[in-house]
Design a protein around this nucleic acid. Structure first.
Lengths: 191, 191
DNA sequence: AACTTGATTGACTCATCAATCAACATAACA
DNA sequence: TGTTATGTTGATTGATGAGTCAATCAAGTT
């Protein structure tokens, strides 16, 4: 049933299947054949649309980052006060999407992968910079010159909570959000 | 030059070589042959002393945990006041040993591995429980009933800072220690 | 109808690696 | 001096998986 114009559909399906397989395995040790099968295509097609396994993994990583970025922007739209903006960023970081088991698994794997793959490291650098910048801007009216420092600490807690929840069976986004937000309040209030 | 009583020597060498290779690769995707070569023995010997690759990785993981535990105990011995004890635990977590690139890489990989390997997950559970318990005990005199909650937050920051430093080029243990300790002070002071 | 282009497959190649095994070397002991 | 324990090697096997390729099929295009 070959039709013309399948490329974007196949690419999306393969990226989605990649994330699913990575989540299932809990690591990047997945086979192109399995990914292709899940996407409902042959292994050859995966190589046709993506250069190879590496590019496929990279595309999956970028996709997750894109989703995260969109989620942050969506949350920020509904935020009025600086405190709201802070809450929005944190809530996005622990949103249900980011907290689904297979997405958590993908994030963890990508962290490790970033150690050896410069491209992956670059992507994570972008994520970290954006998170830091978002937090700093939201904190600026609340903590002026201390904003960058507080932002760094908050960013670390967010990353750390990811691991905890990833390994701890039952991830609880709202609880994680509340914890970070409470911490933010304390840090802002501390003279 | 085979002598009797080589077993402990070989085991130690293989575990050390495993950690080195994992650190070099930045992932658990290492070959038994390379590990064996680095340890100065044949690949067959690695299988002789350890059941297989899995057991070798597990032993390496346990070794790192053992080193960390010893480091915590050593730091705690020199601690007098509760504040000192707190500082000691944090300092151990960010001690030079734990912060060597190959150890960080091993930790990260083991985190990911714990998602699929129950044995690894168990080990990490022990680490997390011990860290939490140590922190809680140190915090008890400083924050009484709020101690467990503060401990959880601190543990998350510690984990999060690990990732940041692992991906951020130049790991700075003392700086990380200072950041966490400052955070602890703020949290304890907050009524 | 003939031709072109994109989509798609599955078999094939080639490399990698974990694990096994037979063989041999050395030491301890009888 | 055998005999047994331990230590050690490296060749081999068998499985797995990435990437390639020739061939096929369906839609447009002229």
């Amino acid at each position: 049933m070959p039709r013309v114009g399948m490329e974007p559909i196949r690419r999306a399906a393969l990226v989605k299947a990649t994330i699913a397989e990575v989540g299932l395995k809990g690591s990047l040790d997945v086979t192109v054949a399995r990914i292709a099968k899940r996407a409902g295509v042959s292994s050859g097609l995966a190589h046709h649309y993506f250069g190879g396994k590496e590019d496929l993994l990279f595309a999956a990583m970028r996709h997750i980052l894109t989703l995260y970025g969109a989620s942050v922007r969506a949350q920020l739209l509904r935020a009025g006060t600086p405190r709201d903006r802070l809450a929005a960023i944190i809530r996005a970081s622990f949103g249900p999407d980011n907290f689904e088991p297979h997405v958590i698994a993908a994030w963890l794997s990508f962290y490790v992968h970033a150690q050896s793959d410069p491209g992956a490291r670059r992507l994570l650098g972008i994520y970290q910079a954006r998170l830091g910048s978002n937090l700093t801007h939201a904190l600026r009216p609340l903590a002026s010159s201390r904003a960058p420092d507080i932002a760094r600490t908050l960013a670390s807690v967010i990353d750390g909570l990811y691991i905890r929840h990833a390994l701890g069976g039952a991830p609880d986004g709202p609880q994680a959000t509340a914890r970070v937000l409470a911490l933010a309040d304390v840090l802002v209030d501390a003279a």
